[in-house]
């Protein structure tokens, strides 16, 4: 995992207690890891490979809105109600990842306040980063007039 991912974000002690709950998974390319609207009871930290997040659009293949690569958190809808995936996820290449059961992690966090705090801070940072990226793309910077209007 890259140093900008969870390794850097969560101090060593709580990180080790978290990782003890995880187990390694692999998904062949093309696997639908989860579907929009499904129950969000797990999350993954991608070790290798890429995952596309998509939205179902009637009449066409799902529209990809973002690609996640190595070191990235896959899934945060487990953290807050309604605990449903708001996007779908598909492996674009063979993926190896750590999988975590959300209920187990939340239960550990009840007892382990240091982990609770660090994990929440990490997830908020991830969400903030994705929000910034989405807003940047909203600007359509590569458009003909670079987010301005023709002068």
């Amino acid at each position: 995992m890259k140093d900008t991912g969870i390794l850097a974000a969560i101090p060593e002690g709580p990180r080790e207690r978290l990782m003890a709950l995880g187990h390694e998974m692999s998904f062949p390319a093309g696997t639908r890891i989860f579907e929009e609207g499904g129950r969000a009871d797990r999350f993954w930290i991608i070790h290798t490979g890429g995952v596309n997040l998509d939205i179902h659009v009637p009449g066409r293949r799902a529209a990809v809105v973002e690609t996640l690569g190595a070191g990235r958190l896959l899934g945060w809808s487990w953290l807050c109600p309604p605990h449903q995936w708001h996007l779908g996820a598909e492996a674009t290449s063979p993926v190896r990842a750590w999988e975590f059961n959300a209920a187990e992690v939340l239960e550990l966090c009840e007892r382990d306040h240091e982990l609770d705090h660090a994990l929440l801070a990490y997830v908020i940072e991830v969400i903030g980063r994705r929000l910034r990226a989405a807003r940047t793309r909203l600007l359509d910077l590569y458009g003909p007039y670079g987010s301005g209007s023709p002068g």
Binding site: V65, A70, A133
Partner: peptide
Amino acid sequence: PEWTGNVGVVTALLDQ
């Protein structure tokens, strides 16, 4: 739908 590559901001590629 024809695109099979990455979608997102260019800085996200730094992970790779």
